[in-house]
Design a protein around this nucleic acid. Structure first.
Length: 892
RNA sequence: GCGGGGGUGCCGGAGUGGUCAAACGGACUAGGUUGAGGGCCUAGUGGCUUAGUGCCUGCGCGGGUUCGAAACCCGUCUCCCGCACCA
């Protein structure tokens, strides 16, 4: 028994030397771009990586065998915090750490025998890559898609960096989980909000994305239609704009609430008796509680700030509060409160003893504000609402909106939860933002000819602040416009930028004139993207946005980067996530050393469907190992070759072979690798069975060859080895995927007589079957009453069309009609209750006539004798092994 | 609270109106091979019967639809995941 790792190394060497996986554009061939999410180079592969690559490589190899021109590249998402943290810890440089990690990681990937085109390898930490981040940033700046603004930001005190909202998880830093603080800083933003509508709408076009990912993105974008309404600050002409989706409740407003940190708040209380208390409140609520999220609903807190607003609709004077449940970032940061019809407003009003005014009554009774225990949020009739009384509140939404617009008090508008993308990071290991600040000229973009702005090699990594800030050589520059003294921007870009366009770069990885050129037109978009669900929102949304932004500055014509998305499930062990703290981590390196790469890959694909969680099992891996040994010994063991007779045993094996090809192909097309492998296992078992007797060498070898081809996307090294042992001079990686012949799929060829059953509702396949089988006799099992309908349908549909989908549609329609009682149908239960008998139940005579005519027609169509058997009597049906609505085809 | 997905042998998991519940793998049991073990090969693994097979039970729980339900409908329990004061 040859050692699997020896075999693996042998073929990996051959693949590398022959460069068979290198790809080039070929307009004559259909392209297929298969992409896995590129890894962050941490230095070591984990099982999640292996699973990701096993899926991707299987697909890439399969598509290649199917004749596609396949682009399947690999690279590294190499900028980011861990490298810098490691540098701080080890007193080294992030670059060294990263490049070393890439080397280690690549070695492990190569051990897996993945069919990447390594000539296209990229690493985002190299200036030749990140210069294009800068290039595109400048293009976006020019187009007005990038801007600088002061805003409260999330500050991680441990990482000493700003975090995007998306990077704050339950009040903690997404990497180190320390509590996040709030600070004010000048930051660079990208206008992703401008694309909210398109990002949302285009989700509908992504048919091959998992529904749950699209739902998550829709949620994240958070579109909601409503009305912007201006209240007036009492005693002034000042507007207080609020956003509401419920203008129908406008007459029920009894107070207003501002987000505590809203700049307006301090302005309003300045110099009043409330100033000190408000300051204290803001400090407590905003700073300390902004990110404190608990499982239970947070207690509503707030206070009155001594000012009043005027409701434009009815002139009501309402008090203004500040409260912790109003968010500054959403809408206008202020709300109108309608305690009678909003649960949050209700709770707050109860706590602060604010009046409750009912403006919508449910049908049938009147609400009493005194007795309400919760807000009424259902539909109802408008009351206490001036001219709008008496109408349904759903209609009032539209009418009051229109009225407010007409009066000039506000307008209909759309709000999104999505915020603009904050890209500034106060860190070293990122792409320098190509901007220079001049005392005279302000923020000046670095001219294109001066790109790239390269990260200086010299830097101190103390763990505090941004090393770029203290690097005088880097910071002190001349202003590109006035040539005066100026300072360079020391912020670097969010690394999500690097991963937002890398699929384009793979198409044209060595282009030094542009981020990418013509080849991207051929390859993009990615046909299948594969990666973890954890990127469902951030990475995938940013990449979609970046692509659209690139389109709008003329860099590409593509609007969506990923046509299809597959989110693989997690790899778990003992029912929980693999993690050092649980001590259940399985190291891929050890598994490869013990069993070889094919075993590791095959097990990962076999143990679960790609989207599902995968429970790692040592015994299971061992089982995959055993199976591969069985497969290999099919070609290794010397088999006697007694003759060339082809009897039933051969026929059966050939039939099984064709059937296996068919089903395996179908499964692979649907990414059901575990089921595909299961079928191959069955076929291998069948070959072993066959081998117990005398064998026909031609038939046997063909079966083994087929096995090798079918298994080659999953266990390529062993497949190559078998291929070679069978005397082939070519590499199996370049072979064609096997084809099957439907007419050979006939498992029980040796049986002289046979009854095949099929449901009548799939008439098309019944017909096909009857022809293939050369049916001599067809038996239709029919039951009382409804037999006529079905037989009639059968006849009609055969006459009209042979499109099975049309037939199915018609059948379903019949079913529907039956439920409406329009179509003749009788069951024993119905028969017992004469009053419920359907109206158009046919008479005995009519039935017989209809059956006769259908029978004649079918006889002609099938060229076979047709027999009708009543099957509604369950005893008789059982004796015939049949049920009503089925067709039996008797073959002789 | 809102949204999404599940509950099938000892285990991982197939099967979504009938021919056919448990494919495929693991684990276990027996037999073979072996000096022994491992490995490998073969058979078996819900119950009851004849030992050709036949029947019954069974897919979280309870109802319903149907000639027929693991699958469809209603209710219920339970688990997992995502979002969560979005006005």
């Amino acid at each position: 028994m040859a050692d699997f790792n020896t075999i693996a190394q042998k073929w990996q060497k051959k693949w590398k030397e022959s460069k068979i996986f290198q790809t080039a554009e070929d307009p004559k061939k259909e392209k297929f771009y298969c992409l896995e999410m590129f890894p962050y180079p941490s230095g070591k592969l984990h099982m999640g990586h292996v699973r990701n690559y096993a899926i991707g490589d299987a697909l890439a190899r399969y598509k290649r065998m199917k004749g596609f021109n396949v682009l399947y590249p690999m690279g590294y998402d190499a900028l980011g915090l861990p490298a810098e943290n490691a540098a701080i810890k080890n007193q080294s440089h992030p670059k060294e750490w990263t490049l070393h990690s890439i080397k280690l990681m690549k070695e492990q990937q190569e051990q897996l025998g993945l069919s990447y085109d390594w000539s296209r390898e990229i690493a985002t930490c190299l200036p030749e890559y990140y210069r294009w981040n800068q290039f595109m940033f400048l293009k976006f700046l020019e187009k007005g898609l990038a801007y600088r603004a002061k805003s409260p930001i999330n500050w991680c005190p441990k990482c000493k960096t700003v975090l995007a909202n998306e990077q704050v998880e339950e009040g903690g830093c997404w990497r180190c989980h320390s509590a996040v603080e709030v600070k004010d800083l000048e930051q660079w933003f990208l206008k992703i909000k401008d694309y909210a509508e398109e990002l949302l709408k285009d989700l509908d076009k992504l048919e091959n994305w998992p529904e749950r990912v699209k739902t998550m993105q829709r949620n994240w974008i958070g579109r909601s239609e409503g009305t912007l309404i201006n209240f007036k600050l009492k005693g002034t002409d000042e507007d207080i704009p609020i956003f509401t989706t419920r203008p129908d409740t406008l007459y029920g407003v009894t107070y207003m609430v501002f987000a505590p940190e809203h700049p307006k708040v301090m302005e309003l209380v300045k110099g009043t008796e409330h100033e000190e208390k408000v300051k204290k409140f803001i400090n407590r609520v905003v700073i300390q509680e902004k990110f404190e999220r608990t499982a239970e609903d947070k207690e509503k807190e707030g206070m009155f700030i001594g000012k009043y607003a005027i409701n434009p609709l009815n002139g009501d004077e309402v008090p203004i509060y500040i409260a912790n449940f109003v968010l500054l970032e959403y809408g206008t940061g202020m709300i109108m409160a309608v305690p009678a019809h909003d649960q949050r407003d209700f709770e707050f009003a109860k706590k602060f003893d604010i009046p409750i005014k009912v403006v919508i009554n449910p049908d049938g009774y009147d609400l009493d504000p005194e007795k309400m225990s919760r807000a009424y949020t259902e539909e109802g009739t408008m009351i206490n609402s001036g001219d709008f009384e008496g109408i349904n509140n759903m209609d009032a939404i539209e009418e009051i909106s229109k009225f407010v617009e007409k009066k000039g008090w506000g307008e209909k508008t759309v709000q999104y939860k999505l915020r603009d993308w904050l890209i500034s990071r106060q860190r070293y290991w990122g792409t320098p933002i190509p901007v220079i600040y001049c005392g005279k000229c302000g923020a000046v973009p670095v001219p294109e000819k001066d790109l790239p702005v390269v990260l200086p090699d010299k830097a101190r990594f103390s763990g505090e602040g941004n090393p770029l800030e203290t690097n005088e050589e880097f910071v002190n520059v001349k202003c590109p416009e006035c040539n005066g003294t100026a300072r360079r921007e020391t912020d670097t870009m969010d690394t999500f930028i690097d991963s937002s366009w890398y699929p384009f770069r793979y198409c044209d990885p060595r282009n030094d004139k542009k981020p990418f050129g013509k080849p991207a037109e051929y390859w993009m978009p990615v046909d299948q993207y594969i990666g973890g669900i954890e990127h469902a929102i951030l990475h995938l949304l940013y990449a979609r946005f970046w692509t659209k932004a690139m389109r709008d500055v003329g860099l590409t014509k593509v609007s969506e980067p990923f046509s299809a998305l597959l989110c693989q499930g997690m790899v778990i062990k003992d029912g929980r996530k693999m993690s050092k703290s649980f001590g259940n981590v399985v190291d891929p390196g050890e598994i490869i050393a013990k069993y070889g790469p094919d075993t590791a890959r095959l097990f990962m694909l076999f143990a679960a469907l790609p989207e599902k969680e995968l429970e790692w099992s040592d015994e299971g891996a061992n089982g995959a190992f055993r199976f591969l040994k069985r497969v290999l010994s099919l070609a290794e063991e010397n088999i006697a070759a007694p003759g060339e007779e082809t009897g039933n045993r051969e026929k059966n094996l050939i039939a099984k072979q064709h059937k296996t090809i068919k089903i395996v192909t179908e499964h692979v097309e649907r990414f059901e690798f575990s089921l595909a492998i299961g079928r191959i296992m069955e076929f291998v078992n069948a070959i072993y069975k066959y081998r117990e007797g005398e064998i026909n060498k031609v038939v046997y070898d063909d079966a083994v060859r087929t096995t090798a081809l079918l298994i080659s996307p999953f266990a390529p090294h062993i497949a190559e080895e078998i291929w070679e042992k069978l005397g082939s001079k070519t590499m199996i990686s370049l072979e064609k995927w096997p084809e099957y012949d439907e007419s050979m799929i006939d498992e029980k060829a040796e049986q002289a007589e046979e009854i095949v059953h099929n449901t009548i509702s799939d008439i098309h396949s019944v017909m096909e079957l009857a022809k293939i089988k050369k049916a001599e006799k067809i038996t239709l099992f029919v039951s009382k009453g409804w037999k006529y309908e079905y037989v009639r349908m059968l006849k009609q549909e055969l006459e009209k069309t042979r499109d099975p989908s049309e037939i199915m549609k018609a059948m379903m329609l019949t079913d529907l009609k039956q439920h409406g009682g329009e179509v003749a149908k009788m069951t024993p239960k119905l028969a017992a209750d004469e009053s419920r008998l359907p109206k158009i139940l046919l008479s005995q005579e009519e039935e017989l006539k209809a059956l006769e005519s259908a029978k004649e027609f079918i006889e002609k169509e099938f060229e076979a004798k047709v027999e009708m058997v009543r099957a509604d009597d369950s005893k008789e049906a059982k004796a015939n092994n049949a049920m009503p609505g089925k067709v039996a085809i008797l073959v002789k």
